[in-house]
Amino acid sequence: MADDGARMATTHQRHTRARLGAQTAQPLRRRGSLLAELYRSAVGKKYAMAISGLVLMVYVLLHLAGNLKLYAGAESMNAYAAWLRVMGEPVLPEGGALWAVRVILIVAVIVHIAAAAQLTAMNRADFASRTMRWSGVIVGLFIVYHLADLTFGWLNPNPDFAHGSTAYGNVVASFSNPVVAGLYIVANLALGLHLYHGAWSLFQSMGWSNPAVKPWRRGFAIAFAVVVAAGNISFPIAVLTGAVA
């Protein structure tokens, strides 16, 4: 107890000294270094995860919305794919807007993974729902395959693969293989789980807990995850069952 008392006294003196000096002695810092200081903490890294995750959530929803053109037929889908390359013209050069989006996505993915890795290292033991880790890894590996398949065309079985004009044929050719279709289905189930925990965590990490938002958080997370996962899974199923050919 005596020991405790002595420590309290010194702590209190330290506080008093610091309070007297702090307001005048500290130099003004630039906002950049304040952000860096915020990022140094685990709470700050969670902000980085939440904001990059939000960017990716918006993208994944737009991606789904665009892909629904698959149900409008080959012409509609291919025209949409071609438009992605010229959107923003004439203000932007061809492919300009597309590349801007790609750069934003690449940065978001890097931030998301880097923050996750650093949090894991900080926590030593068990960062994240185990679910988040394996679902994140599955989604990450899937994206690599997905890009090689439908963006770059390296692994796409469509003999007529061409950038920006044969999207419909590329998708149908790819999903006609049951193994590939199964891979897409499994990956999107993992994405659904990842989005469910992620969309809910977003509110918590960003500190959005005001009474207007509170009752909607869980429902929003479930709805978002189900819409994205079910929408994406419907494409390989539609191709496999011959609804889209």
Binding site: H15, A18, A22, Q26, S41, G207
Partner: peptide, 20 residues
């Protein structure tokens, strides 16, 4: 959630080290 929000605000608004 409230603590997270207050923490970000504190870090971004403060001019320098802790007063406490």
């Amino acid at each position: 959630a409230m603590m997270n929000r207050d923490y970000a605000r504190a870090k971004l608004r403060r001019r320098g080290g802790g007063a406490m």
